[in-house]
């Protein structure tokens, strides 16, 4: 019987990710899709911290972490170094994928400039933004990827606050505006879709950017067993549509038969528990408008 998923584990167990951690699921899937010829770049964040407390590492592929805001630049340096090494005859006829796997803070906020530079310069990298919609590593502070009305420790809900007061920054579209050959959104609840996109991104020459939604038990407030279910609801409600933009051509890669009410997604998470039905209606309208824009009725 043919296997549905590759068996090689390039992220070792024993890492210190929380039970039900979405980031570890993403890394397992991404590396299964990419294979061994990959160099991973992490910026500071959950993933870096829980996989590499000296003297142990969970990584079975070459891995580097430097600082928080420079994943794009470090990846650029590695990509060019590989080119230089090829001139010496190393890595002959091999395509080594340089893969930054960086959180929403390290991508949409502090690392935004380095990312933009790397995309604009056309480096052959596969940049994966693992989006858990806040600074989870430091205690759930809001980032520019925190969605409207979610409560975060620096945007808490309160008597005079409904939590985060700005909608989520649209990183995939910002990446696409750089005119790069491949942009996609993905969610860990759809492994085949995600892995297909990573594989495609590895094969395409030039920069690829994949924005992956990755539920977080701690920051979003739900039972660990619901990580996949919540991700699925994010997609089924149209909160997080799955699409790709290949050489400028936009395509929805997963179309829910009928979009579920956003309320189902919202009511499962503690970060939204302060919301009234009227508040959720506002969010529903916002999601409806965005779906319409993407042609996802």
């Amino acid at each position: 019987m043919g296997k549905r998923f590759p068996r090689e584990e390039l992220l070792a167990p024993g890492h210190r990710g929380c039970a039900g951690c979405g980031a570890s699921i993403l890394v397992r899937m991404a590396l299964k899709a990419a294979g061994r010829d990959v160099i991973v770049v992490n910026s500071t964040g959950c993933l870096e911290v829980f996989t590499t407390p000296y003297p142990e590492t969970a990584w079975r592929v070459p891995w580097i972490h430097t600082a928080f805001e420079c994943g794009g630049a470090v990846a650029s340096g590695i990509e060019r170094a590989i080119k230089a090494l090829k001139k010496r005859g190393k890595f002959k006829d091999r395509k080594i994928t340089v893969m930054p796997i960086i959180g929403d803070g390290g991508t949409a906020d502090i690392g935004f400039q380095a990312l933009s530079g790397a995309l604009e310069r056309g480096h052959d990298i596969v940049y994966i933004m693992y989006d858990n919609e806040a600074y989870m590593n430091t205690g759930v502070q809001r980032s520019s990827a925190t969605p409207l009305f979610a409560s975060a420790t620096t945007a808490p809900a309160g008597k005079r606050s409904k939590g985060e007061d700005r909608p989520k920054k649209d990183m995939a579209m910002i990446a696409a505006a750089h005119g790069i050959p491949y942009v996609a959104t993905a969610c860990i609840s759809y492994p085949e879709d995600l892995m297909k996109k990573v594989k495609k991104a590895c094969e395409i020459e030039g920069p690829a950017f994949i924005h992956v939604l990755q539920p977080c038990t701690v920051g979003w407030g739900y039972n660990p067993e619901d990580t996949i279910k919540i991700g699925r609801l994010a997609v089924e409600t149209g909160f997080f549509p799955l699409y790709e933009i290949e050489h400028g051509e936009f395509r929805i890669t997963y179309r829910p038969a009928k979009r579920k009410p956003l309320k189902e997604y919202i009511r499962m998470q503690k970060r939204y528990r302060h919301l009234t039905d009227e508040d959720i209606e506002i969010l529903q309208k916002y999601v409806d408008e965005r779906c319409k824009l993407l042609g996802l009725e």
């Binding site: 650029s76 230089a84 380095a114």
Partner: peptide, 28 residues
């Protein structure tokens, strides 16, 4: 001269890119 030249968008990225390249094993 046959060097790879990365026209980075800041000095922070200049050093970060040198770190990435040097960590891959080339002279920077």
């Amino acid at each position: 001269f046959d060097a790879e030249y990365i026209k980075v968008e800041s000095e922070h990225s200049a050093m970060a890119a040198c770190i990435g390249a040097s960590a891959t094993g080339v002279r920077t």
